[in-house]
Computed example of a mutant assay.
Amino acid sequence: MSKLKIAIQKSGRLHQESMQLLKDIGISIDNGKDQLKASAQNFPAEVFYLRNGDIPQYLRDGVVDMAIIGENVLVEKATDINFVERLGFSKCRVSIAVPKAMPYESIKDLEGKQIATSYPNTVNQFLTKNNVNADLHIINGSVEIAPNIGLADAIVDIVSSGSTLFKNNLEEQELILNSEAVLAVSPLISIENQSLLDKIQFRIQSVLKARNYRYVLLNTPDEHIPRIIEILPGMKSPTVLPLAKQGWSSLHTVIDKNQFWNIIDELKQNGAEGILVCPIEKMVI
């Protein structure tokens, strides 16, 4: 029986969130300590635990069929590899940062400067686009210390919270790329495994949609139902169920999680009581 070969990062935050996503879509992995490969118990799939930077080549060679990987890695190492889904986690940005004491008005200030980075291809593309000539000092590891020890005038690195830049007296100046985890696919994936991938992608889409919505239940006098329905930005029409108390009903609907606090006061002013907001695990539309 054909098995879908899935690559994920061996360790780090991307690993943890990737494993959680597999769990959320119902794929149970028997993951023993220090295993490099593990089989799913309830889905025809194997998971390969790899170094993030090695994953593009495994995809290119068809050793794995799909991977959960940072978009920034694809931009740097594998522009020939396509991704089919943005996964909404491990968000970061690839940015240029310079010492706070360095005068900086525009990208032109990096002309002739030394830039330390682990992303030479990404940086070269950006500099070429902006007609800037600079020398790259390629570092694997702690790029942010380079200006402090005289190795470079500026750096290009991944930025998440910005705390590492702050600790090293650096200031973010130019955004090169916004990145997040994506679902990348091998160009050599078989027809049989493409079918398995389609099933996984459908499950992922259901989980991702659910994370953006909340299930809302509320009680209201029957005379307020038309107005409540107007207020609720539901998917279609809310479910209305009569309560044991005469003249009262319960309304159930699904709304965007970011809209709830904008309408809560209006719901209360128009008779809504006993409002419950619940997370949704999966949502199939």
Rank of each mutant, 00 (worst) to 15 (best):
3 K>F: 09
3 K>V: 13
6 I>S: 01
7 A>T: 07
8 I>Y: 01
8 I>N: 02
12 G>E: 09
20 Q>L: 13
25 I>S: 07
29 I>A: 05
34 D>I: 12
36 L>P: 02
38 A>T: 09
39 S>V: 12
43 F>Y: 12
48 F>W: 13
50 L>I: 13
60 R>A: 04
61 D>P: 04
62 G>D: 05
64 V>I: 12
65 D>K: 10
65 D>T: 08
66 M>C: 12
67 A>G: 11
67 A>R: 06
71 E>G: 11
71 E>W: 07
72 N>I: 13
72 N>S: 14
74 L>F: 07
75 V>T: 07
80 D>K: 11
81 I>K: 00
81 I>S: 03
82 N>A: 14
84 V>H: 00
89 F>M: 06
89 F>N: 00
90 S>N: 15
93 R>I: 05
94 V>E: 00
94 V>F: 01
98 V>D: 00
101 A>H: 05
101 A>R: 04
102 M>N: 00
103 P>R: 06
104 Y>M: 09
107 I>V: 15
108 K>S: 12
110 L>A: 02
113 K>L: 14
115 I>H: 04
115 I>S: 06
116 A>W: 11
121 N>K: 11
122 T>C: 05
125 Q>D: 09
125 Q>P: 00
126 F>V: 06
134 A>N: 08
135 D>G: 05
136 L>M: 07
138 I>C: 08
138 I>M: 12
145 I>C: 05
145 I>S: 03
150 G>C: 13
151 L>I: 14
154 A>V: 13
154 A>E: 02
156 V>K: 03
158 I>N: 04
158 I>D: 02
167 K>R: 14
167 K>E: 09
170 L>F: 06
172 E>W: 09
178 N>L: 14
180 E>T: 07
181 A>P: 08
181 A>D: 02
181 A>T: 10
184 A>E: 02
194 Q>L: 14
196 L>S: 03
201 Q>G: 05
204 I>H: 03
208 L>M: 06
209 K>H: 06
215 Y>E: 05
217 L>K: 05
218 L>C: 08
225 I>W: 03
226 P>L: 11
229 I>N: 03
232 L>E: 00
234 G>M: 05
234 G>Y: 11
235 M>L: 14
239 T>W: 04
241 L>H: 07
242 P>K: 10
243 L>Y: 04
244 A>P: 00
247 G>W: 12
247 G>H: 08
249 S>A: 13
251 L>V: 14
259 Q>N: 10
260 F>H: 03
261 W>T: 10
267 L>F: 11
270 N>M: 12
271 G>L: 09
271 G>D: 04
276 L>G: 05
278 C>R: 01
